[in-house]
Amino acid sequence: MAYSEKVIDHYENPRNVGGFDKNDPSIATGMVGAPACGDVMKLQLKVNAQGIIEDAKFKTYGCGSAIASSSLVTEWVKGKSLEEAGQLKNTQIAEELALPPVKIHCSILAEDAIKAAIEDYKSRHAG
């Protein structure tokens, strides 16, 4: 199967690979996995006091599309508020990367990783 140019670009030069200290209160961590392919993704957001995402890092074990999807969302969410980031849809990721139907689950994984990170942040900053 042929990957789109954007997928290959993100796959060969992934942006923001790595991680932050998950115990730091400004860090939100989202971990998700896709049983369909066995891919696992960890997405971390560095959130400032105003609730704006200052930085994002990811670590993904999976196919090229999964790596490209997570690389892309780390770029997209920077500078966004948690609320804005939570509105990101997998269809936007799939469209941007021109993912074929069999790889849509990779974009779902990236969307769910953001949601999981936001929930992690909210649960740790509740009340």
Binding site: V32, A34, V40, Y61
Partner: peptide
């Protein structure tokens, strides 16, 4: 039907163990 589902899982302990395996 589990063969065609696209659901993701979020069990942190299990996923952390998967990361360590990888």
């Amino acid at each position: 039907d589990l063969q065609h589902e696209q659901q993701t899982i979020r069990d942190p302990d299990f996923l952390m163990a998967q990361m360590e395996w990888r």
